[in-house]
């Protein structure tokens, strides 16, 4: 299903999505982030520093609440996300490609009910990157594309005054059907223009990982390379690269006690990061990953080796956030290329 939408009617389409909460990138306090779609959302954003991963995997998730009066049995109250229908506009194809990867993680072996409950009501309306939103993009070298529909329900292509709207999934079709007369039928000229724009987008020069297919074997061979410590020399050990990554999904679980008489609180899941020194800390005080190099190796190997070994695809989608946002310029592309080049 394909159609044309006047850009200034985007707000009307959103208004027509009865029962859906709509989100779109907005610039607030100097940064772009996904916000409830305002009166007149314009999809003219670079990629947002934070990916839309929090819609399905929020930074804080309450599993259950507990309360125990001394001498009595503990009482547990289940907490589950309220069913909502949310549609996120303006998702870049790299972040779209993160969706099936996160879906795999949270459904493999065990179905994560919290993730699933949020994911079930989520739809993503992507925006093709006619021009790369950042010089740090490297989606093509990891099997993606600036016009990829992977993980998206609808893909928009900017035609200047109008969007070319293409459904990818049944949910996407339903979203488009809700637009009714707002959508116009595209002609051959528009289809040709879309094809031209997509071809031009793919032809834009991009930096990249030299040989992503070879990366798993190369990283395995370079596991003990002294280069890891060298490349992590400037690392400050913060969580930017992992927290802003669209596919990083490690978490910690804590009991947050809010009262002692009676004992009560919540069991809470929060994002965690393999870059934090306490991530692998044992209760004995031993830390198997006690150097910055070993932590960099973990992050990069997860993206380009372990995930591939487990699921047959690279976890990294080439969004470039860990490169552009790193306080000291640690560059995953350079790391993969240097390690691969050294073995």
């Amino acid at each position: 299903m394909e159609a044309l939408l006047d850009k200034n009617r985007l707000k009307d389409w959103i208004a027509a999505l009865d029962g859906w909460e709509a989100y779109a990138p907005a610039r607030q306090d100097g940064i772009w982030s996904y916000q409830p779609a305002g009166d007149n959302p314009e999809l003219n954003h670079p990629n947002t520093p934070q990916p839309p991963k929090g819609f399905a995997f929020p930074q804080r998730e309450i599993f259950f609440k507990f309360e125990q009066v001394k001498g009595e049995a503990p009482r547990l109250t289940a907490v589950s996300p309220a069913p909502t229908f949310r549609v996120v506009f303006g998702v870049r194809p790299c972040d779209g490609r993160a969706v099936p990867r996160m879906d795999r993680v949270f459904s493999d072996h065990v179905d994560d009910g919290y993730y699933q409950a949020r994911r079930d009501g989520l739809a993503y309306v992507g925006l093709a990157c006619n021009t790369p939103p950042s010089r740090h993009c490297f989606c093509q070298s990891v099997g993606g594309s600036p016009v990829s529909t992977d993980g998206l329900d609808v893909l928009l292509t900017d035609l200047g005054e109008r969007y070319f709207v293409a459904a990818v999934t049944d949910t996407g079709k339903a979203l488009m059907q809700a637009a009714g007369a707002l959508l116009a039928k595209p002609g051959a000229a528009e289809r040709k223009e879309v094809a031209r724009l997509h071809a031009a987008a793919v032809a834009q020069p991009q930096r990249g990982v030299n040989d992503a297919a070879a990366a798993p074997a190369k990283l395995k061979a370079g596991f003990d390379s002294p280069l890891w410590e060298e490349l992590a020399r400037a690392c400050i050990g913060c969580g930017i690269c992992t927290f802003l990554c669209p596919t990083c999904h490690c978490f910690d679980i804590n009991d947050e006690v809010t009262g002692t008489v009676p004992l009560k609180g919540s069991r809470v899941r929060t994002w965690d990061s393999c870059q934090f020194p306490d991530f692998t800390m044992h209760s004995s005080g031993h830390n198997p990953r006690d150097t910055l190099g070993s932590r960099l190796r973990q992050r990069v190997s997860h993206k380009f080796r372990y995930f591939h070994e487990n699921f047959g695809m690279h976890q990294c989608t080439g969004c470039g956030r860990c490169v552009s946002e790193c306080p000291v310029g640690i560059d995953i592309v350079r790391v993969v290329n240097e390690i691969a080049g050294s073995v």
Binding site: Q59, C238, G239, G285, H286
Partner: peptide, 29 residues
């Protein structure tokens, strides 16, 4: 988002253990 980049980048934030860490980093056997 509690990425702690502000703490990590600060030359003065060098404490062995920080009130926000969920475990104690100075534990020994």
């Amino acid at each position: 988002i509690r990425c702690f980049a502000c703490r990590s980048v600060c030359p003065m934030c060098y404490c062995d253990e920080c009130v926000v860490d969920s475990i104690n980093l100075v534990v020994t056997p």
